[in-house]
Every structure is written in structure tokens, then in C-alpha cells.
Amino acid sequence: MTQPTPIAPTPASVTGVILAGGRGERMGGRDKGLVDLAGQPMVRWVMDRLSPQVDRLIISANRHADAYASFGAPVVADTQPGFAGPLAGIAAALSATTTPWILTTPCDCPQLPDDLLQRLSRALQAQGGRLAIAHDGERPQPVFALLHQSLLPDLEAFISAGERKAWIWCQRHHAAVADFSHCARAFTNINTPQEHRLLAATLPTGQLPGMPTPPEDRAS
């Protein structure tokens, strides 16, 4: 039996989840959320962008829990062993949160949109369902997601079956899709030292550029 669509999310009903539980292998094993970028750790850039959009924050991390806790948000670790990927972090956050919705983003995308929740929520209202993801105009971005807590049992079963790919799981639930093609660079993540150097070279200390306003949202 198909479950009814939940009440549309508002900021007060959403926990922001920063996914920082990876190995950082392409960054030489460094914990990417704690890597400095223009004067502050990358996780701080993400927190500053995400916190105005949601009621509270959770950081999903499997290493350096004390360091992450120093930023003032609860820290949760995967319940699945062996660095099982972003879906494991999402499942752990769903288990820990008290809000009906979570909004997820990786820790290595410091330019994430400041209207991420607004546009994902709009997509849910237009397309229905319990899950919405971003699309940058070229490809889906399934770890930039808005999802309802009722999806947790299915997500846990998916992970327990050995599945790891976020996009496959999103397709199972006919995820609503929000268009972010006007700010595709917002989804550029920093996976390698070279990518880190390239972005850092463009930034004044302590500042990131704002996101452009999409044409349909501009005042005429």
C-alpha cells in the first residue's frame, strides 16, 4: 500500500545533516570536513550555509568526533561498520533526529545553495513523495537530499543488503527533482588537494561568493 505524502516540510520540521563520514582517500586520508579553506574548516563553510535553512544541525562523522563536536552540533557515527558510504550516514542521522525531515549535504561542498531547502521543498510539493534531490543541470546530486523519517526502515534494509549507491536508492523512491542548473558550481566538491588549491586560490579569506538568482526568481 502506498504511503500518503507527508505534510510539506518547513524549516522548523527539518534537521540539517552534514555528511563527513568518509575516508577522504583522494585527499590523502585527511578528514575533509576539517581541512582548512580560506581560514576556516570546510565543515564550518557548510554549517554557515545550511544552518539558516533548518531548525538544527547534525554532523555525521566516523572520525575525530571531538573536533566536530566543538562546532556545536551533535555528532553521530555510522551504525554500519567499514565506512559504508553516505547512505549509512543518512541512516544514522535519521535514527538520531527528532524532526520528521532531514536535509543532507556533504561536508566538502562549501558553496552549497542558500535556498537548498526551499527549492527541494517546492519540488516535493509539485511532484509528490517523501524524497527530493538536487539536479545541477547535467547530473542528479542524490546526497543533496530532503527526505522523510519514514524512509528509514527501507534505507536500513537497502544498506543491509550490501547496497551503497545513493542514486539507485533514490530511484527506488521516485525522488522528486529540483533544478539547480542556474548554480551548478554550488555542487562542486573538493575531493583532492588540487581541487582544494584551485578553490582556495579564488577566495578572499573568510568569504565565499554568493549564489546567482535563477531567472524565474528575479524581479521583473
Results as ranks from 00 to 15, higher is better:
residue 112 L to N: 02
residue 95 S to R: 15
residue 58 I to Y: 08
residue 104 T to H: 09
residue 139 R to D: 06
residue 53 Q to L: 07
residue 86 P to I: 00
residue 149 Q to C: 02
residue 103 L to N: 11
residue 150 S to W: 01
residue 85 G to H: 12
residue 27 M to R: 09
residue 122 R to Q: 12
residue 101 W to E: 13
residue 28 G to K: 10
residue 111 Q to D: 03
residue 86 P to G: 13
residue 93 A to P: 09
residue 47 M to N: 06
residue 60 S to R: 02
residue 134 A to C: 07
residue 99 T to L: 13
residue 83 F to C: 09
residue 159 I to S: 08
residue 142 P to R: 01
residue 133 I to W: 04
residue 82 G to Q: 13
residue 98 T to P: 00
residue 69 A to C: 11
residue 103 L to Q: 06
residue 122 R to Y: 02
residue 35 V to D: 05
residue 150 S to K: 01
residue 38 A to C: 04
residue 67 A to C: 08
residue 148 H to D: 14
residue 56 R to P: 01
residue 17 V to H: 01
residue 128 G to E: 05
residue 34 L to T: 10
residue 15 T to K: 08
residue 125 Q to M: 10
residue 56 R to K: 15
residue 110 P to E: 11
residue 129 G to D: 04
residue 53 Q to F: 09
residue 111 Q to G: 01
residue 135 H to A: 06
residue 113 P to N: 04
residue 77 A to S: 15
residue 138 E to Y: 06
residue 89 G to I: 02
residue 87 L to E: 13
residue 88 A to Y: 01
residue 48 D to H: 12
residue 92 A to W: 04
residue 126 A to G: 05
residue 72 G to W: 00
residue 126 A to S: 11
residue 67 A to H: 13
residue 35 V to T: 11
residue 37 L to G: 03
residue 72 G to I: 06
residue 146 L to V: 05
residue 92 A to F: 09
residue 25 E to F: 03
residue 65 A to S: 14
residue 87 L to D: 12
residue 48 D to E: 14
residue 78 D to A: 14
residue 72 G to Q: 11
residue 75 V to Y: 13
residue 113 P to I: 07
residue 116 L to C: 06
residue 86 P to W: 05
residue 91 A to D: 09
residue 113 P to C: 03
residue 44 R to M: 09
residue 150 S to R: 06
residue 86 P to K: 07
residue 23 R to V: 12
residue 98 T to L: 10
residue 157 A to L: 10
residue 26 R to I: 00
residue 49 R to Q: 11
residue 129 G to C: 02
residue 40 Q to Y: 08
residue 20 A to K: 08
residue 91 A to M: 03
residue 136 D to Y: 05
residue 157 A to R: 15
residue 23 R to K: 14
residue 57 L to K: 10
residue 56 R to D: 14
residue 59 I to R: 04
residue 17 V to L: 15
residue 126 A to V: 03
residue 102 I to T: 11
residue 51 S to D: 07
residue 142 P to C: 04
residue 60 S to P: 04
residue 32 K to C: 06
residue 49 R to D: 04
residue 52 P to F: 10
residue 61 A to G: 09
residue 25 E to M: 08
residue 142 P to Y: 03
residue 46 V to W: 05
residue 47 M to T: 08
residue 40 Q to F: 08
residue 84 A to F: 13
residue 92 A to S: 15
residue 58 I to N: 12
residue 107 C to Q: 08
residue 83 F to N: 15
residue 80 Q to K: 10
residue 66 D to G: 07
residue 97 T to H: 02
residue 116 L to G: 09
